[in-house]
Amino acid sequence: MSNTKYILGSFADPDDLMHGIEKLQANNISIYDCFTPMPIHGIEAKLGVKPSRLPIAAFCFGALGTTLGFSLLYYTMAYDWPMNIGGKPSLPLPNFVPVTFEVTILLCALGMVATFFFRNHLFPGRAPRVMDLRATDDRFILAVDARENTDHALVDSLLKEAGAVEVKYNERKYVSYE
């Protein structure tokens, strides 16, 4: 048994990568992940990745922003220290629209992006878990777990048939620690 942990098919073209996914799936070989320098439309559907639930998070944070923004205005203007400004009402709803709106947008944006960073473990200084350094440049990487899929020769030939420029056998999961 070799020490190979991951087999990487390195493609030069996104269409070849999609082709590779189809070939592997037709042969019941599970795909660990793909790493690409740009978003590839339709790849999630092909890999069976569920749609992101970030829009729900965004909506919740937005709703929280609306509530907090309006509460701030209500508390300061109408409850804590109502002021008589030219005899106008101390709860002038139209005047509350701009600030409530801005706080909604602010919380929606910050909350959604924070959720995105949290779920993908993105934060400043995180060691990049990269399997192939060219995956952010010009190569489309298809990673197969070598322990789960033991027929390495088949994986190799399928990847090459699909148009992989290079097939790598990585003994470490991530190269970026080296």
């Binding site: 790493f35 978003p39 992101s52 993105l122 060691a127 990049p128 995956a135 952010t136």
Partner: peptide, 17 residues
């Protein structure tokens, strides 16, 4: 770079964001 690696899920969420 926040440890960006360009995986499928990262790109999917990136596009939604």
């Amino acid at each position: 770079s926040f440890g960006w690696n360009g995986s499928v899920k990262t790109w999917q969420r990136f596009e939604i964001v």
